[in-house]
């Protein structure tokens, strides 16, 4: 994935996290502990995850269309081949630098998720409500995706070294 795609994904992830926090607070993030309310919370999270995946796919499609439209508007004489070539250079193939950046940024994402899992265990250990623990876990997964996205963007901007 290119810098632009990563930036779009990270921004979409941040918006989704903000939406989740607002919705979860609206529901009462540390609500009652009975199994029925936990089931309804799990359903809420599943629906949110599915909506999130669909939203990110839609945002990516819109981003690609926007890149094509902007390029076509800037280069009115360009034929379809030129447009395809230039657009694929912006959003297209993944090469060795992309793979290295992905690898390094995924480490940061995994660290966030790992800390979230530990925080979830602490929440259980200190007797917080299971609903709160589940919310911490879900938020840490979203935070991991966002951290990975923004770390990638930072590495594209600053550069990346082997080792």
């Amino acid at each position: 994935m290119s810098f632009g795609v990563k930036a779009v994904n990270a921004t979409a992830g941040a918006i989704l996290l903000a939406a989740y926090v607002v919705l979860a607070l609206g529901r009462g993030a540390s609500g009652p502990e009975d199994i029925d309310s936990l089931r309804s919370l799990a359903e809420f999270m599943l629906v949110f995850a599915i909506v999130g995946v669909v939203a990110i796919i839609a945002v990516n499609i819109i981003y690609r269309i926007a890149v094509c439209a902007v390029f076509a508007a800037k280069n009115k004489d360009a034929n379809d081949g030129d447009i395809e070539r230039s657009v694929s250079a912006v959003v297209g193939c993944e090469d060795e630098m992309d793979k290295l950046i992905n690898l390094k940024s995924q480490q940061i994402g995994y660290a966030c998720v790992g800390m979230g899992i530990v925080a979830t265990l602490f929440a259980f250990a200190y007797g917080d409500s299971p609903a709160l623990a589940l919310n911490i876990l879900f938020a840490s997964l979203l935070l991991g995706v966002i951290a990975e996205g923004f770390a990638s963007c930072g590495m594209y901007a600053r550069g990346v070294r082997h080792g």
Binding site: A89, D95, M97, R161
Partner: peptide
């Protein structure tokens, strides 16, 4: 873009190489 296509890399990588932000394999 021509160089990127000929070496099977992205233009972004060529830009980073020229700017000294990336050392290639």
């Amino acid at each position: 873009l021509d160089l990127a296509e000929r070496v099977n890399a992205s233009r972004q990588t060529i830009i980073a190489l020229e700017a000294g932000k990336y050392t290639p394999s």
